[in-house]
Design a protein around this nucleic acid. Structure first.
Lengths: 343, 343
DNA sequence: GCGGAGCATGGGAACGTTACCATGCCACAT
DNA sequence: ATGTGGCATGGTAACGTTCCCATGCTCCGC
């Protein structure tokens, strides 16, 4: 037989006051005798009172919970995002309901329904569906995250700053003496591919370089996709040091495996630059030099924006979080060596 | 101005019935005219009714939420556990409140308090504190997970089967022609170290081998810890092929880096067997052969046990989930080669 | 000396749901 | 014809909290 959990009435009784007074004391409100408050606090401690958030949410309309819908909590990047959101939410005593959608619109819809029913105060969503119907029906404040959020204008969203990231990467390559990197990018269907290539083009034009001759190779956003793309590159006739900029760390690591498979070595024969910043980039040999997306910051900032949204001061714009370079050794330094004239 | 969310009364009014009848129809209960139920369901659909779980939880005493407190959601193993728990919970329409304790008893306590206040129906906890005080005070059904749970007897807990895992690993090593592996284990203070070594001893005795001569090397449970341990092994005078069984994938990967650092190669000169099954074990070259802990299954089984606990049919014992071997190539096959006589 | 301001406290409604009991109706057996 | 049982439905209390208003008291100024 599990015993009943103490309520504010138990506290009030023990302190010899009414439940209104007990509530006032616990809320730290005004108009209460310090001595009375002390009695109530002592009583609450004594009976082991814990406020019932269900009741609070019911009465106040604020459940103190937020929803987080990401593709997969077991994916390192999304786990980082979740962690950032969690930490920021915990600072203000808010709990997070976490769901994984597996890039499946049906699951996404189910999860959003669960969030509506749980009466979360708002939600952070990496949208899978092409439309915002489910989210509109959501009828609650929400903030989108990730690159897929960029399809929707006039909605609050948080993502990484691809333009800045690409600039960072390409400038670093140039500083290390590399020219015209081969670009290993995702499949044509993916929005992220277009945005990555656009950023590269913009950067080249800004630096007065013609982006047209850059070699672009396709592949799935996976280890195997990167490996195949790299094999394709190595099997083309080529000359001198090869430099590769992969749109994703998985592909970059796959490319590194391919290099070794062909009996070449990184970074002596091939330089590889990744993009994501997954921790396991440190597990390869040499460690993967990459541009890290600020997953944790994105999660934290999304919670921040969501609070704004909830408080009724929405920004309705996209926030771009800056990326940073992690230098681990997969890039050769050719800047001291004699330049190879091309063309 | 955000408009009020429809309640069961709105549904009842629109269907022209009382809220009792509406509730019965929605609950799919007995004693209701099929035609009436139809009208109610249509009305619910029309007004976009979503049951308020806060109110349900308040009235029924079941919030439909579970708590999950793990060390770090950004750690691949724990992310897998979370994913497994999530999926199992979602099957029955239960939501998960996820918290990261960072192995910090203070944070653990705060998270448990948050769970109590949210009135979750139960919690799954990887315990950090040495005592169960916080959990006892929890006053709710709970299930422990992970190896740190084994400190506590007479409590429901779920973890991986270390004994079976070690048997699997050592038998596999023998099948590949290896003898007397060097054991790279964690620091003396850790409980997991003892349990790992005990399992090795038991296995040796069972297979009629003297475990005494096995070389045991210490290190932190990190990449660097594994690297240093391996360097130590390689710098000792040794002879022939070296075989290493690391108690953790991170250490195994660190060991692999050390091998390459000394100009040797894996698996030609050194064979390495890991333990954990983190996905990034596939990123090394060669891929890490390892014994995978069933993180997802552990999470799912913990939810299962927690349901039992909640329903009042507690088992109060430890469940050991079987591990499996992932063969990726970091072990040389010496079984066809001439045996090296030792001693 | 008395009215009213100001403060500490108490009483009660409301949030949305479910569980229980009451009501009214029809059909069937006596 | 009348009691009885079963079934569809309605009414209402209760879950634990907060918020608003009422009450009673003290203290101050006229």
């Amino acid at each position: 037989m599990r015993k009943r959990r103490p309520t504010i009435i138990d506290v009030a009784d023990r302190a010899g006051v009414s439940k209104s007074t007990a509530a006032r004391a616990l809320a730290g409100g005004e108009n209460i005798l310090p001595e009375t408050r002390g009695r109530v606090l002592t009583a609450a401690q004594a009976v082991g009172y814990e406020p019932n958030h269900l009741a609070v949410g019911m009465r106040s309309g604020r459940s103190g919970m937020l929803g987080l819908v990401i593709p997969d909590i077991a994916n390192p990047f999304w786990a980082e995002v979740a962690r950032g959101a969690q930490d920021r939410a915990a600072e203000v005593g808010v709990s997070l309901l976490v769901f994984s959608s597996d890039w499946d619109p049906q699951k996404e819809e189910n999860h959003l329904r669960a969030l509506r029913r749980a009466r979360v105060d708002g939600a952070i969503v990496n949208p899978v569906s092409d439309t915002l119907d489910d989210l509109d029906r959501f009828g609650l404040p929400f903030v989108l995250i990730g690159s897929s959020a960029e399809r929707f204008a006039d909605v609050s969203s948080v993502g990484s700053n691809i333009t800045q990231a690409v600039t960072l990467g390409l400038d670093h390559l140039v500083a290390k003496g590399h020219q015209a990197p081969v670009l290993i990018v995702g499949p044509k269907s993916r929005l992220a591919r277009t945005r990555f290539l656009n950023a590269v083009n913009r950067h080249c034009i800004e630096r007065d370089v013609d982006p047209a001759p850059l070699l672009i190779v396709d592949g799935e956003y996976t280890l195997e996709g990167g490996r195949e793309a790299m094999l394709q590159v190595l099997d083309r006739p080529h000359f001198g040091h090869v430099c590769v900029f992969a749109a994703n760390d998985m592909m970059a690591i796959g490319a590194m495996l391919a290099v070794r498979e062909r009996g070449l070595s990184c970074p002596e024969d091939v330089s590889i630059l990744g993009f994501d910043g997954i921790p396991s980039g440190a597990f390869t040999f040499p460690g993967l030099t990459t541009i890290a997306k600020p997953g944790r910051d994105i999660g934290a900032r999304a919670v921040e924006s969501l609070f704004d949204e909830i408080e009724g001061r929405p920004e309705h714009g996209r926030v771009y979080m800056p990326c940073r370079l992690i230098d681990r050794g997969s890039l050769a330094d050719l800047s001291r060596e004699p330049r190879q004239m091309v063309g």
